[in-house]
Amino acid sequence: MEALRAAFDFSDFRPTERWVSRAVAAFLLVFPLLPVSSFATATMIQFLMFSLYGMGWNTIGGYGGQVDLGKAQYVGIGAYTTAVALIRWDVPFWVSMPVGMGFAVLWSFAIGYPLFRLRGHYFAIATIAASLVLKDLFEVWDFVGAARGLEIPAHRFATPDFVRLIFKEDVYYYYVLLAFFFGGVLYMNAFRKSRLGYQLRLIKDNEDMARSLGINVHWAKVKTYAIATAFVSMVGSFHACYIKNIEPEDTMSLDLSILIALMAMLGGAGSLWGPIIGAGILIPLKSYFKEWFGARAGLVGMDLILYALIIMVVSAVEPRGIWGLVERHRARRESA
């Protein structure tokens, strides 16, 4: 009950932040009603997906300070559970999604338990290694289509199918995902003010002190890792229904893991808005850069070069990301 109240309570943010977030929420609600291209809608769906990935990452990576670079394996578990269940046994999305989350969380315990004996760089690299091992396994596992992947035969179902989450028009996907997005924001708002949220932030700051206060640091990390995993797997299930064509190379690749972490770090790890800002800047940039440069001969990769430069500049200038820049600017204005 208290958690529910905390989820809807944004009173500790500044008035400007509240107004901006309300405006963004309103914009997201009416966005498909505006005269926009299907490309823009697709970009917005990507934005919402990566915001959610980033929110999940932010629990362990941002509040907990454990840089996790292996989130793609859980995208894969979610996506594959939903796809396999739908293709083989015609299981509805709303059943396969929580089941996928369950598998992902179980796997996260198996991986997380040994993983969190490591810290810092060692942890980050080990998460990559773990994720790559799972991807290699999926690439030879015939049950899930091995390297060819799986395709959801969308034409077999009468659309719009809200039970299996199979639509022809992106706008349906958009609104389903938007509901997830608002749910995610509310959950994160409660999380950051929960017991675990505060404990994690102390763990990030000073593990020994956390231990001396009776916190089981290892278990707190494993638990948070499972929460992050559930988030990511949920979006993975959505990804399967949305993209319809999944293979290990794109649902479980290291590039995806890095992108998830990058969004949140660039936007501002450990703040509620960080992942949303990160995705809100990087996803449209990525899509439109690609649109502008990708088609032109001789400029292949130009989009990602600009992209890389932005990342490099932010990391060198303000390690707390774009939200860090905002806060620094605000602090300067207040002290002046």
Partner: peptide, 8 residues
Amino acid sequence: PMVAQLLG
């Protein structure tokens, strides 16, 4: 911090 090094 380490996060910035990874990102960079």
